[in-house]
Amino acid sequence: MDALLLIGLSVVTTGLITGAIFALVAAGVTIVYGAIWLPNAANGQFFMLGGLLVWSLVTGWGMSPLLAAALVVAASVPFALVLEKGLIRYFYDVPDRNIVYLVVTLGLAQIFAGIFSSTYGRWTDNYSLPAAWPGIVMIGPFPFPKTRLLVLSIALGLLAGLFVFLRLHRVGRALRAVFQNREAAALRGVNVRGIYRFAFVLGTLVVFAGGTLFAMAYSFDLTAAWSMAIVAFAIMIVGGPGSVLGSVVIGLVFGFTQAIVSVFANPTIATFSYLVAMLVILLVKPSGLFTR
């Protein structure tokens, strides 16, 4: 009985953390896709970049993980702005831009993958951070590292903040207006290009946040980038491109799937099931489950 309870609690906590991080990254991807029609295939590499930079700051400079994470997330804003200025904005008016963007961001992903394997990949093949908040809390018989509790709360907090922002803030509402109808939004005085830029920066920031949180909670290696990219796409497609609610719900579902499958079998089977789910949705209802 105790063993079952332990497994259950482990599944719930792992599912929550993985799910929240999945949801966060997928929300970033879906915001960008919904607004600009940019399916960012490099999201996994951005995620990885966030994690690796935190790792560098912490292990190289001895910075505290939380401060490092905050710095890295802040640095993602100029990073995204430069990328937008130098590359992304050239395709804003291309009619079939989603496929152009897919190819371009696959190119970006390959560039980053090459950079990582020729720098970080030479140093070590497993990256782990010291606990941001040392110690454990006991949930019944289950020991839960405080760092993961912290990561979970930050991730959920960010998701909640994102929701509130998109529903209530003026810019967030303009962003959703662009999701729904670009022309109508433009007619109502929304600066569509400004929103594009803002969406790219916001989405990138959220993906970076996901990466730094993941790095704080778990040790990782360079292969996590591609799997994250695929999982984020899967969540976005199943949840419905442009739907933040969809990515949160499906992100949590996928996170729990991963946690449950990992108890019984190889986690790869979970990845496999995401791929199948995505393929089915693509064929049956390409607009996803959560779009109106």
Partner: peptide
């Protein structure tokens, strides 16, 4: 080692 970087840049 930089093959991926070269090809990626070329794609873009």
């Amino acid at each position: 080692l930089y093959k991926d970087i070269i090809y990626g840049v070329l794609i873009v």
